[in-house]
């Protein structure tokens, strides 16, 4: 599934940012996943567990913030939270003039870091050598 490819890209990006403060350990990688981003969460979590191996974020947990689908109807001139991704018509006028305001997110939001407890911990390589 594509979740593994996405997890590998995520780990690369997280390591790129974490490498600027290698005296810190990355505890968690926080991402936002929109309802329309077609991500199967369990696959992304297991993909992340594989992708983080041997990297700067090898100890990090993946924390997913779900972003609900929000539509804007240009006819009603209002925003609506949609009931589901199977219907993107306006929930009020049932019109087709809707645009997606939120729901396409697939973003790395922030890393949470703490100082390394053990000074002897060696600093891992920035990127995972095992690429597909």
């Amino acid at each position: 599934m594509h979740e593994l490819s996405i997890a590998l890209k995520l780990v690369d990006l997280a390591c790129e940012h974490a490498s600027s403060c290698q005296e810190m350990q990355v505890d968690a990688v926080h991402i936002a996943v929109g309802a329309l981003s077609h991500i199967h969460e369990p696959s992304l979590l297991s993909g992340f567990a594989i992708a983080r191996e041997g990297t700067l974020v090898s100890e990090a947990e993946l924390i997913i913030r779900q972003v609900p689908l929000v539509l804007a109807c240009t006819d009603c001139e209002r925003d609506f939270e949609s009931s589901g991704i199977q219907d993107l018509r306006c929930p009020v006028c049932h019109g087709y003039s809707t645009q997606v305001r939120h729901g396409n997110e697939l973003d790395l939001e922030f890393l949470s870091l703490r100082p390394r407890q053990d000074e002897n911990i060696s600093i891992g390589s920035v990127s995972n050598p095992a690429r597909i």
């Binding site: 973003d107 790395l108 939001e109 922030f110």
Partner: peptide
């Protein structure tokens, strides 16, 4: 923990 803001698209 310290927070390092990133706010970047994964892809």
């Amino acid at each position: 923990p310290r927070i390092l803001q990133v706010r970047t698209q994964i892809l």
